[in-house]
Design a protein around this nucleic acid. Sequence first.
DNA 1: ATTCGAAATTATTTCGAAAATCGCATTGAC
DNA 2: GTCAATGCGATTTTCGAAATAATTTCGAAT
Lengths: 249, 249
Amino acid sequence: MKSETDNDNTTVAKTIADQTYQHIRRDIISGALPPGTKLAMEMLTKRYDVGLSPLREALVKLTGDALAVAEGQRGFWVSQISLDELQDTMNTRLLIETQALSLAIEKGGPEWERAVNQAYEELSSLEDHLKESDAATFTRWESANRRFHEALVSACGSKWLIRLRSMLHYHSERYRMISLAEASVERDVHDEHEAIVEAVLGRKTLRACRLTELHLQRTTDVVRAALERRDEELLSKHKKRSRAGKSRS
Amino acid sequence: MKSETDNDNTTVAKTIADQTYQHIRRDIISGALPPGTKLAMEMLTKRYDVGLSPLREALVKLTGDALAVAEGQRGFWVSQISLDELQDTMNTRLLIETQALSLAIEKGGPEWERAVNQAYEELSSLEDHLKESDAATFTRWESANRRFHEALVSACGSKWLIRLRSMLHYHSERYRMISLAEASVERDVHDEHEAIVEAVLGRKTLRACRLTELHLQRTTDVVRAALERRDEELLSKHKKRSRAGKSRS
DNA sequence: ATTCGAAATTATTTCGAAAATCGCATTGAC
DNA sequence: GTCAATGCGATTTTCGAAATAATTTCGAAT
């Protein structure tokens, strides 16, 4: 189902099942398929223009990533989001990412330093145009951001840490994208990244971990604020509808 | 594809795909399907008496668990084992399990203590009969052991830690089962478990984590020894075959 | 009016055959 | 003799239809 050995994302997908998997994953993370959406077979076969077999394989793989949930004989849904799960996701990602980062700093050689620098440069160059804030640009920034964090831990020597970090990163992205619909954030992520690179290449393990913690904590705070606002809005909408007698459940 | 919400293993599987998934997983972990085995479609449809669709879904799910690997248009294989991956698996599991355990000790209430005690009792009662060392008994012990470790972390409040721990636990089990074919180990796991329970219920977080580390470290050592012996044997066998001119690669 | 149960409808899941792709061997050219 | 191109057999992947399970609807009875 995967193109190369097993690992990740940007590699070209060889089978329809895998293309569809990547496609649906993009749509879940971008919010085009919002949390809780029923992933009905007929709708999806039309939307992605694929048959049932590759579609189902894609959905099964997404449940493995916890981006979708399945209930036997009842189908698939986009997995829900919540403040609790946001906190859980970010806490777990912090645990894994700091561990991976420490190992990478300890083990990384010159070609790792090059990779970190390169990923950082590419990310930086994208951040200049980021003020335009259209969805496509932001998606490309997310992609560069992912590669940056991947590069940082790439020398950790642990397939598990890399794999699990990647998994949690996708969930972080979904939260960020969804919260983005709420309010475009004015935060200087660039400076945070710069500081991390400096600490990492200076082999200051503790400092790099502290900065990473701060980085993830700030992301969490921003997303949480947006999420709380969203919840309030949804709640008040629901109230209005209820009073109008059009609630359907 | 799953019976209840999404989570785990012992729940009854509602679909053929899910039954097959659990069945193949058992066989991979037990070593009935050894590392590196080609998971050919025809062979598997006969072996498990299922059609292609549920079989492929099962295999896709197994690649999500990293128990199998897929290569587009070339099929599926049981994932390889190695000394490096053993170390990686156990290190990562340690990181996650100690974190989960700390949180559980901090947050766990009376019903968690009961669950821990019960799981411990069930495991202990099984350990009495364990000397017989037939495969079925050992599999039931593995199952009880899994429930014990699950109970310990069940109150940690983190779905991610529970999920990832479970994933890594299955890999540990596979290593242990495979190394078991090499040499039935004389180790008193019982005492180690007892000490952990005591520390956990006494809310001694640091001590519980230290004991867990020791517990996993001992397991790693035993498995590594068996694995090294196995590698030597395979190597010498290969040499012999080569000399006999019957090597096939 | 409300609840219970059986048919009808809708959706998911599975099967069996067709299509696409890969690995290998054979052939032909330089 | 080596190497590239081509065709064949084997295998994976995908499609479309049948089977199976869940949900809704409708009617009858309390």
